[in-house]
């Protein structure tokens, strides 16, 4: 075999290996989803969704966990959205060159790399204990809000950055103040990107388990929460609880709950992608 033949062979072999690796991840994902559907799909019915938790696997439902997740979703959105978007606007539009902004930026990059369970420890000491909120929904959502803040801020900045400066120039040249320009031009033009980032961040929050366990979300909550100060559990914790039990029936339950959790996660990701595409299509500079 000549050298160039050998090279060509290596080249082709790598090509096949490359396809295989790309497909590997997706095949695993497919197996995961298939296995979960196979195990859990038949378990899902209306009772499963509306039943309260129970020691007996067949009777147990996800109602309290699902409601907890919905509460967490809304509270986290309400807290993280204004703070994250506001911080993003500040960094992108106001503080660009200042030392303080530069410092904030490094800090945010660092926060993005802090493991989620550490945020749990923070929430436990500050929100649960110092603020005396206990293991409440509010303590949980505050903790998750801090956790997703870096994601919201970074994606908000990306979206704002995409707005061409010619639009801002036109606005200020007409006598608009800085905030008027941001409010009337920059934000409307970037709303798709901002929302995409926020939705993705919240969908991440919904899948989080560890920080909520640390702040004291319970494995067993007899009733669905009815106010932000109530104790709660969420879907991932319910799943974790069921996975940890040896009986097969509970594994079936957890697979069924995973289907619902994945449905929520993928739906939110789908909505985010939809928004992004719509936004990109609407605004072509």
């Amino acid at each position: 075999m000549t050298n160039s033949q050998k090279n060509k062979l290596i080249d082709n072999a790598f090509k096949i290996f490359g396809v295989a690796c790309t497909l590997f991840g997706l095949i695993i994902l497919a197996i995961l989803i298939y296995d979960i559907l196979k195990t859990g799909l038949t378990r899902i019915d209306w009772d499963f969704i509306t039943n309260l938790p129970s020691r007996r696997a067949q009777k147990a439902g996800i109602y309290t966990a699902l409601m907890g997740t919905v509460w967490i979703l809304f509270l986290t959105a309400i807290i993280a959205f204004p703070i994250g978007v506001g911080a993003g606007i500040y960094l992108e539009e106001y503080g660009k060159k200042s030392k303080w902004a530069n410092f904030l930026e490094i800090n945010i990059a660092n926060l993005a790399g802090v493991p989620s369970i550490i945020y749990g420890l923070l929430g436990l000491e500050i929100f649960v204990r110092a603020f005396n909120l206990g293991g409440s929904l509010l303590a949980g959502s505050l903790t998750l809000s801090l956790l997703i803040l870096p994601i919201v801020i970074v994606s908000t900045r990306e979206a704002l950055k995409a707005v061409p400066s010619s639009i801002k120039d036109a606005s200020v040249a007409l006598g608009a103040s800085k905030w008027q320009t941001i409010w009337n031009q920059t934000l409307p033009a970037s709303v798709g990107g901002v929302l995409t980032g926020v939705i993705l961040a919240i969908s991440r929050a919904i899948g989080e388990t560890a920080p909520l366990i640390v702040v004291g979300a319970l494995a067993y909550v007899p009733f669905a929460p009815s106010s932000p100060m109530d104790e709660f559990t969420v879907m991932p914790i319910q799943i974790f609880n069921w996975v940890s039990r040896p009986q097969h029936e509970f594994a079936v339950n957890s697979a069924a709950a995973i289907i619902i959790l994945l449905l929520i996660t993928f739906m939110m990701n789908g909505v985010a992608v939809y928004y992004r595409n719509k936004w990109q299509k609407k605004i072509k500079w």
């Binding site: 606007i89 503080g95 902004a101 945020y119 923070l122």
Partner: peptide, 30 residues
Amino acid sequence: QEKIIETLLKLAASITILTTIGIIGVLLYE
């Protein structure tokens, strides 16, 4: 008005600093 808005936005951004201080403080304290 502009000044107030800028201050509010700056406060929002500063929460990230508080988070870092909080994390390090809590971990060190305990």
